[in-house]
Design a protein around this nucleic acid. Sequence first.
DNA 1: ACGGGTAAAACA
DNA 2: TTGTTTTAC
Length: 716
Amino acid sequence: MPVAKPESSDSRVIAHVDMDCFYVQVEQRKQPQLRGLPTAVVQYNEWKGGALIAVSYEARKFGVKRSMRGAEAKEVCPQIQLVQVPVARGKADLNGYRSAGSEVVSILSRRGRCERASIDEVYLDLTDAAETMLAENPPQSLEKIDEEALKSHILGLNNEDGSDIKENVRNWINRHSADHRDKLLACGILIVAELRMQVLKETEFTCSAGIAHNKMLAKLASGMNKPSQQTVVPSSSVNGLLNTLPIRKMKQLGGKLGISLQTDMGVNTVGDLLQFPEEKLQERYGVNTGTWLWNIARGISGEAVEGRLLPKSHGSGKTFTGPRALKTVPAVQHWLNQLCEELSERLCSDLDQNKRMAHTLTLHARAYKSSDSDSQKKFPSKSCPLRYGTAKIQEDAFNLFQAGLREYIGFYGVKTQGNHYSGWGITSLSVSASKIVPIPSGTCSIAKYFHGQSTSHFSSMQPLDNVNGEAMLLLPPGSECYSEVNSPKAEVDFPKEESWTEDTVPELDLQEQKVNFLKDEDLSSSLSKTQDGFTQDISPSLLSGTEACLEQSQNKQESDITKDEGQFKSEYNKERKGKRVKDKGTPSILELFKSYNPYPFGSSFSQELKKTAEGTDARLTIGLESKGHSLAEQSEVGKEKPMHCSSSGYGRDEGDGRREAWSYSIDEIDPSVIDELPPEIQDEIKAWVHPHKWRPNNTVRRGCKISHYFSPTKKS
DNA sequence: ACGGGTAAAACA
DNA sequence: TTGTTTTAC
């Protein structure tokens, strides 16, 4: 039931903020001597000096372009400074850029709903802020307007030559004759200018912005005057702007659709679209796309700014071009392990910092077959429920790969004899984690109880999509069936004569692997130097995956707490500065718990909790003191799994694996103490004990060293 | 066989 | 639901 929206909803104030050559800025902040110099970031690649992925504006003046090779860039700009993307585990490591992006988001989200559109872009809905400003402090009343705002570009404002441009801008912002919509945009100008200055002050990064009445126009505008400037699109300028705008410049039209519009419809500018009736466009491109095209031709775009500050998925991938294609299963497994390690680490950070867990693991690969030149695309992607813990992710990903490979080979029906190369090669691999939801679990309310306080600050980083967090309860382990893909040893058996197993790997490939391992060692040692050694210090074989994972993040927190790469970095550090002295002495969650009810749980649980609390004490304390999201919650939930992991043990999972896993911890709780807990906590406990109904776990059986600690049990 | 590594979303 | 395809930075 579409409801006609009130007119005001079309007078939104939307901004698109885009960081200027972001990766370059991140590197220049690390190495300030590079500031002002022509600089580019290159992705590690021996081949012709690597590929440029970001180019400073100084370098652009020399004609340096993204997607040039390093060598080419040197040709046109011999003095260019080339900075390599950090490498970890033999692949590009973008974490530094991600966390820098998070710093920016945490600032830009201060004035209104904020949507992280990419690692270096956000959309802001500043309607409320602008309306408030208009009501309380309209630009007309300001005697002084910020310098940055005066430098704005206002589309359609004709600056008569000889006139002072800033004066024109001032007049436009101040003019009383403006209609309501323009006044709102004027407020938007001031707000965005202020936000951009805050970004600069707090992060040293510059950015550009577009301010308009919808996302499409804001996005268009943000790219019009770079770097470090902002552009406004008053509605009176829209037609003129779109009329001559090349169709391919519109977002979504840079690819095949745009080409089709040009070649099939003769549409070269957005204005050209105007002549087509909606029905014609729908006829040619489908109802949705047709309507969308009809709308954008008129500058109409109703998409809301989603309140989302965090990515919806994480992925780690690498390509293996040409001669580097992976030709043996062990070689694939090795790289898969690297990718999964990175992914697992990022998932842990996300859990740690944002209280979210992913529920689906997907593997993508590309492969070629010598027999078929078009075989690149046909390697099927596969997914399965995601279990936390590096080793588990690695195992599952490998199983997904094998399932995919079996299909892929099936497609081509190529048989292999002996150790002979069968003709396939993997040219790219990636693993990703999706269906990320806020973790349930009640410690949120436990913390609330203990502090009689809200934890709603969380909305500052995770505004709207977190609402379901409360409603959701921690789902029990093993509640989801695993697809057969996860126990392929039983299901999938490849012909023995093929080179699946380590011992039949051709010698050449073993050598390749040795080389890879060597590289990795080099990397890990350098990594240790820069990251306090936490990365490689834990042997996943000694700890269960999740424990290793958790310990990693704990180590990180302890060893280098100010270097948090997290989403909350700046606020977190700010809080911390003020409270540093108190960190040591404040009671941990365990102490808090005890002070309310000494020994509420059986020994084992208690110990686990204690261990956790000790491990994360500093952080816990900060989290609880600051308005930080309850970290108790995190350690609780985080701890839940290793508890099953390590103690439920292998091989004793006949019957329902999940119930067993639960019974371990639940049984440790003396039921009588539950009644003594505060009602709110009781509810929590009950939720643990009587979680949602779930489907019996009927696929994962036997040899089930794989217990399913976290399963995305969707609906009930 | 080179624009790599990620992301999101529409669609089937 | 899972998997594919497109687009973009």
